Simulated assay, not measured.
Amino acid sequence: MSELSDSINLISLITNASLLVQIVMGILLLASIICWVLIFRLSARLGTAKRQDQHFENWFWSGEDLAKLYQGIQNSPDRHGLANIFYVGFSEFLRMNKKRQPKDHIIDGVERKLRVGLGRQQQSLESGLGVLASIGSVSPYIGLFGTVWGIMNAFIGLSEASQVSLSAVAPGIAEALIATAMGLFAAIPAVLAYNHFTGKAAGIYDSRALFCDEMTGMLQRETHETATSTQDDPAVAAQNVQSPLV
Rank of each mutant, 00 (worst) to 15 (best):
L66R: 04
D233R: 12
E175M: 09
M218E: 10
L118G: 01
N9L: 11
A190M: 04
S18F: 05
S91R: 10
H224M: 09
L129A: 10
Q74F: 02
G203K: 15
G63P: 15
L245I: 09
A154W: 10
E214P: 01
N16W: 02
R100M: 13
S159I: 07
F211V: 11
I33Q: 03
T180D: 11
I11P: 01
V110E: 03
G157A: 10
L46A: 00
I34Y: 08
S139P: 12
W149F: 06
T15G: 05
I106G: 06
F90L: 10
H196W: 13
A67L: 00
P102H: 12
A31F: 09
A176I: 08
N153W: 07
A170S: 09
A238G: 15
L210Y: 08
F60L: 14
L144C: 07
Q163D: 09
M1W: 05
Q220D: 14
S139Y: 10
I188M: 10
S229L: 15
K50M: 14
R51M: 13
A202I: 01
N97D: 08
G72N: 08
E222P: 08
G81E: 07
Q163I: 15
L210N: 15
L210G: 14
R95F: 14
I34C: 13
N153F: 06
G109A: 11
G119F: 00
S32R: 09
V169Y: 10
D53W: 03
R115N: 09
I23Y: 02
I34N: 03
R45A: 15
F93Y: 14
L46S: 07
I178Q: 00
C212P: 03
T228M: 13
W59F: 12
I178N: 03
I106Y: 04
D78I: 10
A176M: 04
A209N: 03
V110T: 01
S12P: 00
F56N: 01
A176K: 03
S2Y: 09
Y205K: 09
L46F: 07
Y194D: 11
Q123N: 13
W59M: 12
Q220Y: 12
A17Y: 00
Y194P: 06
T180M: 12
P140L: 06
A67G: 12
F90A: 05
G128M: 02
T223M: 03
F56E: 05
L129Y: 01
T147P: 03
K99W: 05
E111C: 03
T15R: 12
P234R: 07
H196Q: 13
K113H: 14
